[in-house]
Design a protein around this nucleic acid. Structure first.
Lengths: 340, 340
DNA sequence: AAGTCGAATGTGTACGTTCACATTAGTGTA
DNA sequence: TACACTAATGTGAACGTACACATTCGACTT
């Protein structure tokens, strides 16, 4: 509003002039070149501060091969934890001088994914983090002969994509083991969509635990992650009596499931025990409060980005201790705890 | 893995050579210059398709004043709807040829916000969309003498920031009117944090409805949007008998509130009616199912981006019909409907 | 038929940075 | 003291595009 003529941002040459050096010297200071005398460096840094100079990323990306943008590809289909992972990723990335370009896919069709990745490629991103953990995403990406490094939060990516050892499988196992320890023998799994890596991991965890406890498994129900589906499933399953506990692949479905049971007159946890996965913020507040498994998604995000940055720098992949998922025991698996 | 030498992406000059025109002509085709013969344009477009050419955004941003990146600034403190708004914003922006750079703030301190905005400025963004609707965010931004256009989803931004007429206030009003129509006269408001624009809007809606119904208001409780706080508040409020209904500023707090009441032996909706705001996916599945108000956040996002794009292009702000919030009546405000 | 005008296209240059190479200063060695 | 060798700095290009200007071409006027 005050209409003050805004000065054009300072360029590397302005800094050089003020510091009485060549623009190249400034560039070296910016890029931590080893051969710079300390007093020169200080003079340049002072000039940078005086002029509030910030390197032009566009020019930098144009002139150098290595770009300064990281792409995050995600599907919106509600996965809890995605957000906290993104925040963690961003933070690390920005500390290392990268910007983040996000691309949220409404539908995860192979075409859309391919297009998105090519979009990133054309935007000259340094690397891509994929938070759209469908199996076919990786098939598509694998078939693209991609040049940019890719990382994901999830195991089982297969193909060329770099993967992080996440412990969804261990988490699912812990959940089921909890049910087993309560004496349940007939445990049903309400799984996620077939194509999802996380759904597969969690189902494997279920199978692991059942196998180890020497229990026979029931064919899992395939859901779509939504509470609405859980609700539907609950009403459908109310008629069956071949299970005494259910492990739902996420909390949303678990909560819908309990609603469906309630509608049908099946009591949780008295008639059927339910455990979820994620520990979404409302899990501790629904009725009955939902037992679940909590994972540190921010930590997973950090690993993914560290992994990606290492790949970009051509360094060997960093190793991390496994993330330990945490069992949250609440009312939905504890018959004696439900008081109204 | 197959180590095939990857070809360098095609440049505008490659296209020009293939189409037997000058690179400038290609540039004109790309920028929809009027004076291009139709057959020339077609020849250029064909060459573009053949080479799978995509303009280099970095070079484009460098050469032209107008950059092609839009910044999205948001705080992570859980607001439902942010995600769907972002998706909508991105879609429109990408259609118009912009990339999206996101910057999620963990803490919304004035310093962090200022730094984030300067970061965007330095990244040469064309405009910024702010999804961190705290009042002080706008104070900080207003005091920055910013040159890039800014838009937000929310009204009441004040200062220089461009605003969109959103209807949170109307939504809150509808929620309270619903309670009034059920015969409630003593209605308490569980508000959001003082600094938040949305919290203020929703409180204003509450006050509007109470005033119009000629009812006296109670001092609102200030929450922090979380279910945990709602839980705490529910236990605290259970001792009070000076209200028969509560309007919570978001669903998360409403669900926690019902949990707190349950703990304290207060029955919802029989003793106290509860209504929330947002219609988060679990609202229809908790017990009792939560009455609430649904807003089309994707639509709000679309408006915000249209607004911003108009500002960037120097066009007048587009006008939209108000978004009508939708009342979702469920069990938590319907005493006769709770069957177990 | 020469002149005028606008449409269509081409040529130089700049954007801000990095890279490859060239140069100068600085230090030790013989 | 001269020599080599490294450290420190400087110079000329190039990245891929858009902008300002110059040019060519054709059609229409007089």
């Amino acid at each position: 509003m005050p209409g003050e003529a805004r000065a054009k941002p300072a360029s590397i040459r302005d800094v050089a002039r003020l510091a009485s050096v060549s623009y190249q010297t400034v560039s070296r200071v910016l890029n931590d070149h080893p051969s710079i005398r300390e007093d020169t460096r200080q003079r340049v840094l002072a000039a940078i501060r005086t002029l509030d100079y910030r390197p032009n990323q566009a020019a930098r990306a144009l002139a150098s091969a290595r770009p300064s943008v990281l792409g995050i590809l995600s599907t919106t289909v509600g996965e809890y934890g995605t957000t906290s992972a993104i925040v963690a990723i961003e933070q690390v990335a920005r500390e290392r001088g990268f910007s983040i370009s996000t691309l949220n896919l409404a539908a995860a069709s192979p075409e859309a994914i391919g297009e998105a990745v090519r979009q990133f490629e054309h935007e000259q991103v340094a690397g891509i983090i994929v938070l759209a953990p469908q199996v076919r995403v990786f098939n598509v990406i694998g078939g693209l002969g991609l040049r940019v490094p890719i990382a994901t939060l999830h195991t089982g990516a297969g193909g060329a994509a770099e993967t992080i050892a996440s412990d969804q499988r261990a988490g699912a196992r812990i959940a089921v083991e909890h049910l087993v320890s309560l004496g349940h023998r007939d445990i049903l799994h309400l799984a996620g969509p077939q194509d999802w890596i996380e759904a597969e991991s969690r189902m494997h965890g279920y199978l692991d635990a059942m196998f180890e406890a020497d229990l026979s498994t029931l064919p899992p129900i395939r859901g779509d992650w939504t509470a609405d589906f859980g609700h539907f499933a609950g009403r459908e399953l109310a008629g069956r009596r071949d299970f005494t506990a259910i492990f739902a692949a996420n909390d949303l479905m678990a909560i819908g499931l309990m609603h469906g049971f309630r509608d049908a007159g099946v009591r949780v946890p008295d008639d059927v025990c339910v455990i979820g996965f994620d520990d979404i913020p409302v899990a501790a507040h629904v009725w009955p409060t939902l037992s679940t498994v909590r994972m540190d998604f921010a930590d997973l995000g950090t690993r993914a980005i560290m992994h990606l940055l290492a790949a970009i720098a051509g360094e060997p992949a960093p190793q991390f201790a496994p993330v330990s998922p945490q069992l949250m025991v609440r009312q939905s698996t504890n018959p004696s705890a439900t008081r109204r």
